[in-house]
């Protein structure tokens, strides 16, 4: 059984963020080595300001109440939790160049890398997930 879980975060909405960080923290809590590769809109999820203002899909805004009622942790809290559990964040260099972003725009402790960095980690990971 593989001890690694590889995740690609390629979308930047609030639902995307929950999918990514719930699976990541659950996997890390199960003693898996976890890496998330943030690319294109996915970079939003670890952007210092952006992560506080993630949007719900159009027409689904009414779920906000459900999130509150079910006592769901906020995305910044889940990001902290993931980091604490040793989840490694890799921001895509190429997307950052395109969008004019630097490492300082993102939460502390991330690494910047290219596709090969992630592929190297993911080659023997199971599962590899894309959100």
């Amino acid at each position: 059984m593989s001890e690694k879980v590889a995740i690609i975060a390629a979308n930047g909405g609030m639902f995307d963020a929950y999918k990514v960080f719930n699976i990541a923290t659950a996997a890390a809590a199960s003693e898996k080595e976890v890496q998330i590769f943030f690319t294109f809109e996915g970079l939003n999820l670890i952007h210092k300001q952006g992560m506080h203002h993630l949007e719900m899909p159009a027409g689904k805004e009414h779920f906000a109440e459900g999130f509150e009622k079910a006592n769901i942790p906020s995305i910044p809290e889940l990001v902290e939790m993931a980091k604490e559990l040793g989840v490694k964040f890799i921001a895509c260099q190429m997307t950052m160049d395109v969008m004019g972003l630097t490492k300082e725009d993102f939460v502390d402790g991330i690494e910047v890398g290219g596709a090969v960095t992630f592929l190297e980690f993911a080659k023997d990971a199971a599962p590899t997930l894309t959100f």
């Binding site: 719930n22 923290t25 659950a26 809590a29 199960s30 003693e31 079910a70 006592n71 769901i72 942790p73 939790m81 559990l85």
Partner: peptide, 13 residues
């Protein structure tokens, strides 16, 4: 109590 997935697992760990 009152915590949603994945928090019970994270706390248990």
């Amino acid at each position: 109590k009152g915590l949603a997935c994945p928090m019970p697992i994270v706390k248990t760990k």
